[in-house]
Design a protein around this nucleic acid. Structure first.
Lengths: 248, 248
DNA sequence: CACGTACTCCGAACGGTGTTCGGAGAAGAG
DNA sequence: CTCTTCTCCGAACACCGTTCGGAGTACGTG
């Protein structure tokens, strides 16, 4: 999660994206924002977001700790760079394929994939909007796909927001479950040992009968695939609700 | 954001919710998990999540810092307690009103309200699932409302997941926008000064025409109300897509 | 070519952080 | 009354984000 600004903080500089990467005068910088982003992503992927500290970043980049503040105004800006790096890791958006439905489906799976591949994304993106060039390119891609539906500009905005909200919200929930598993020591059985007794007591309390029914019934062996099915089904529900609005 | 566990950490104890609050033998504890949760929420609401430190919590509760570890296994567990405290702050769920659609609408608005009222919720809930009693009660409420639709158990699960995913995802996005505004110094004009030049350069690049169109057109005076409208519209889309599945 | 300026680099320090350790003291069990 | 078991917590450890101010470098200009 992005560190929160304290109340009396000095006025923010310009956005990272708006500041020039390199000055014209002094010595050449020995690294770049792009390298900083890549190093941050590598660190966070390997050891978790907590491992992204200014000192470790500096060590990874073979640079003094304080030097990073020449590239970045604060640690939060490193998060911004990391998010946009991930948005760009698969290359730029392809040209739309002409079928809005499959374009949007692909977009949704891509967003979900990014979050699952980089679990720290959920927490980082929660507190700050991201206006990086790669993020914008993918938003533009989604809006372009929606063009085929001949919606008003307001309907397009709503449609885009709904899609992104669902995908992001779903991936976050999926991730929380997945990480809880991982936290119990990378061991499925261990998790059962910890959660099991509590679930039993919940069941015995009798206050959550439908929840218990869902949990017991959904506790099938192929949990990973189950999430896949729920996601795809939910996505279809949402795309279904978009199409009738095209033929007004 | 929840602190991530490091790899070699010792095995986790039981869940907070499963551990006994009070032992039978020694002296009586001088505070309670409930008070810890309330103090944490108050601190986070007033000064941001970053202000929730073990030392400040201990000071607020008039207790030594190390004493907190008798109530809680780690700082993350304090986050768990805080989330469930918020889930319970409006009292227990009412009995379902008989109309599934209005029940679910009310539920959605309640979740969104909680996140907007306690902005730190988004980041905290991103990394950990919450199985606290109050959270479960509201999940149960949603499932109960869905009972009227005569869905299969799997359809109920999907429907519940979709609703929660959309609401959570939307609130997070809304919050990010709102906090970016706040970060610029509680000043709308300041934000324009920071963002404006960047948006102009984006526009001049010509690479994001649809995005620019949406931004310019959505930049109306009544921004707060705009979010309300988008949320309500999106929610209706989703509920619309649920109802046809009732009459299979 | 040389000067001045504008920049990059970064060691050291400041005030915080989460968590552990181990002793002191309180209260129910026998 | 003793013993056991719990609560409490000061002190310490390793680390954190950020700031300061000096040293060094390369370009624009005279």
């Amino acid at each position: 999660m992005p560190t929160e600004r304290q109340k009396g903080s000095s006025r923010p500089r310009e956005l990272v994206w708006a500041r020039a990467e390199r000055a014209t005068k002094g010595p050449a910088p020995s690294t770049s924002r792009r390298q900083i982003a890549a190093a941050g992503v590598a660190l966070a992927d390997a050891e978790g977001l907590e491992a992204v500290s200014m000192r470790k970043m500096a060590t990874a980049l073979e640079v003094g700790t304080a030097s990073l503040y020449g590239y970045v105004g604060s640690k939060d800006e490193i998060y911004d760079l990391m998010v946009d790096w991930v948005e760009g890791e698969d290359g730029p958006p392809p040209p739309p394929g002409g079928d809005w439905r499959s374009d949007l489906t692909a977009l949704a799976h891509r967003i979900r994939g990014s979050i699952l591949r980089h679990p720290w994304m959920a927490g980082v993106a929660a507190g700050r909007p991201n206006f990086g060039p790669n993020s914008l390119a993918w938003v533009e891609y989604g809006l372009t796909a929606l063009d085929d539906l001949e919606l008003t500009i307001d309907e397009m905005l709503v449609a885009s927001e709904i899609l992104h909200a669902f995908v992001r919200g779903f991936a976050i929930r999926e991730l929380a479950e997945q990480q809880a598993l991982q936290r119990a020591g990378l061991d499925d059985q261990e998790w059962g040992r910890v959660l099991g007794p509590y679930m039993d007591s919940i069941e015995k309390s009798g206050r959550y009968p439908r929840f218990i029914r869902v949990v017991r019934e959904a506790h099938v062996p192929h949990a990973a695939d189950r999430q896949e099915v729920i996601f795809t089904t939910g996505l279809d529900y949402i795309l279904d609700s978009l199409s009738p609005r095209a033929s007004r």
